[in-house]
């Protein structure tokens, strides 16, 4: 009986196994061929042209950040100034966040596609592209930080800290009201500082310093008798006169710092863009190099 059965087993299994094996071999061959072609082909003129087109596309698509950021900053700051409920501001922020996420994805994907270009096998092109990629990534990163900074400033300075200027100065309970409102503002500023970059943190720190100074003066008046209270209140109020000037000074300094950083990043990106363009032009203007082969 045995000799009848044993040979039958492998025979029946052979066909599917053979199919699997053949499939695997075909796949390996195809993959190997692709890798071989990739490794051995020299970049053609079309590759340089395609990379150049992608460069222009990426540079153009960076212009979308400006209208997106404007829209976001206006809507978000307005929502805080108007004391909209938290679920509304959160929904607004999440909506814009997903837009920025999508924008960033589109731009980084494009950079990755450029990175896999055959044209980069030319060392000069690879060099120019490396700088180009770094600098465009820096600008993309800047916008990402900018988005977070807008949120942080709106949530603190635009929200509870703005309430400080809405209190009734003439009221006897002004000092107590100020101390209470200042505490909410200071807590928010502290939270905000944790989620912001260096320039924004220094802006928030200046606002914090101003609020703290006044809070101390007004807290001193609490529980004092009439005369001392009014004398100390006057000192606090005298500090208030400087608030607007001090805050706008801090804001102007911040703006200058941010503008400077932004201008620097954009200038660097533009320079690297021009450099990559010039490098690619060299290969595009000599059609005989490798362009005839195809």
């Amino acid at each position: 009986m045995y000799p009848d059965i044993t040979p039958a087993q492998p025979k029946r299994l052979k066909l599917p196994l053979l199919m699997l094996g053949a499939g695997a071999v075909v796949l390996l061959l195809v993959a190997g061929w692709v890798v071989f072609r990739q490794a051995t082909t020299t970049p053609k003129q079309a590759d340089f042209a395609h990379l150049n087109n992608q460069r222009v596309i990426l540079d153009t698509s960076m212009n979308a950040y400006d209208p997106l950021m404007t829209d976001y900053a206006n809507a978000y700051i307005n929502a805080y100034q108007e004391e909209r409920p938290l679920e509304e501001t959160t929904a607004l922020r999440d909506d814009y966040r997903s837009q920025f996420e999508r924008e960033m994805q589109a731009n980084t994907n494009r950079l990755q596609q450029m990175e896999s270009s055959v044209a980069l096998r030319e060392p000069a092109v690879a060099d120019s592209f490396k700088t180009f990629k770094d600098r465009y990534e820096a600008v993309i990163g800047y916008y990402e930080r900018y988005g977070r900074n807008v949120a942080v400033v709106a949530e603190s300075v635009g929200g509870p800290c703005a309430r400080l200027s809405e209190l009734n100065v003439a009221k006897a309970s002004y000092a107590a009201d100020y101390v209470k409102a200042a505490d909410t503002c200071l807590t928010k500023l502290d939270e905000a500082k944790k989620g912001s970059d260096e320039a924004t943190t220094s802006l928030l720190t200046s606002v914090e310093k101003l609020v703290k100074e006044r809070r101390t003066k007004f807290a001193d008046t609490l529980g004092k008798d009439d005369f001392e209270r009014s004398a100390r209140l006057m000192m606090g109020l005298a500090l208030m006169l400087g608030t607007n000037a001090d805050v706008s000074k801090a804001q102007a300094e911040y703006q200058a710092k941010v503008d400077k950083e932004y201008i620097r990043l954009v200038e660097q990106a533009n320079a690297s863009n021009k450099d990559l363009e010039e490098t690619l032009q060299k290969y595009l203007s000599q059609p005989t190099a490798a362009g005839s082969e195809a």
């Binding site: 596309i57 153009t60 698509s61 212009n63 979308a64 400006d66 209208p67 997106l68």
Partner: peptide, 9 residues
Amino acid sequence: KLIDVRTQV
């Protein structure tokens, strides 16, 4: 502005 950028791209 956004439409212009998207169209150009």
